[in-house]
């Protein structure tokens, strides 16, 4: 699958390029006294070489490897989006509105990852899990998580 190798190589190359670009000011030092920039440069060069290797492999083996590729499961766009937004919502909400409300939002949004459940069920699940989380983490384990919005 050339596309897959090209994509992998691209990601790897981006890491290498970022290391080089943003590590430019770090001094590599000498062999006896290595500075903070030596290992980053070495890793960056390694990343770029490996990226080139992966891309080359993708281009070379394109016709040969196509036949035995099993059919891929479709990408979970819906799942990735709702779970991703669910996690980000938690990050955004936990400090301003507290555990209960942010847990409800996270559970509700991430439950949208899968079909097959009605709105009332999702709401009940969100409320139930938020309640359990509050009991387990705030009350039983005593984590310093604010349960409710802090009024200030």
């Amino acid at each position: 699958m050339p596309l897959r190798d090209l994509l992998t190589g691209g990601i790897v190359a981006v890491f290498g390029a970022v290391l080089l670009l943003f590590g430019n000011h770090l001094s590599p030092g000498t062999a006896v006294r290595m500075g903070p920039g030596f290992v980053p440069r070495a890793v960056a060069i390694g990343l770029l070489l490996v990226a080139a290797g992966i891309i080359a492999r993708g281009l070379v083996s394109y016709p040969a490897r196509r036949a035995d590729q099993p059919a891929e499961a479709p990408i979970q766009w819906r799942g990735a989006a709702s779970i991703g937004i669910g996690i980000l919502a938690f990050a955004a909400l936990i400090q301003p509105v507290g555990l209960i409300a942010s847990a409800m939002v996270t559970v509700f949004v991430s439950s949208l990852a899968q079909q097959g459940e009605g709105l009332p069920e999702r709401v009940v699940l969100a409320g139930g899990l938020a309640g359990v989380a509050g009991l387990v983490f705030s009350v039983a384990l005593g984590l310093p998580l604010p349960m409710l919005p802090t009024l200030s």
């Binding site: 779970i83 669910g86 996690i87 938690f90 990050a91 936990i94 555990l99 847990a103 996270t106 559970v107 509700f108 991430s110 439950s111 990852a113 899968q114 699940l125 969100a126 899990l129 938020a130 989380a133 983490f137 984590l143 998580l145």
Partner: peptide, 12 residues
């Protein structure tokens, strides 16, 4: 039903 629970657990 398990997925949202695991996600919430990971967030906390």
């Amino acid at each position: 039903r398990l997925v949202p629970a695991i996600i919430l657990f990971c967030c906390i």
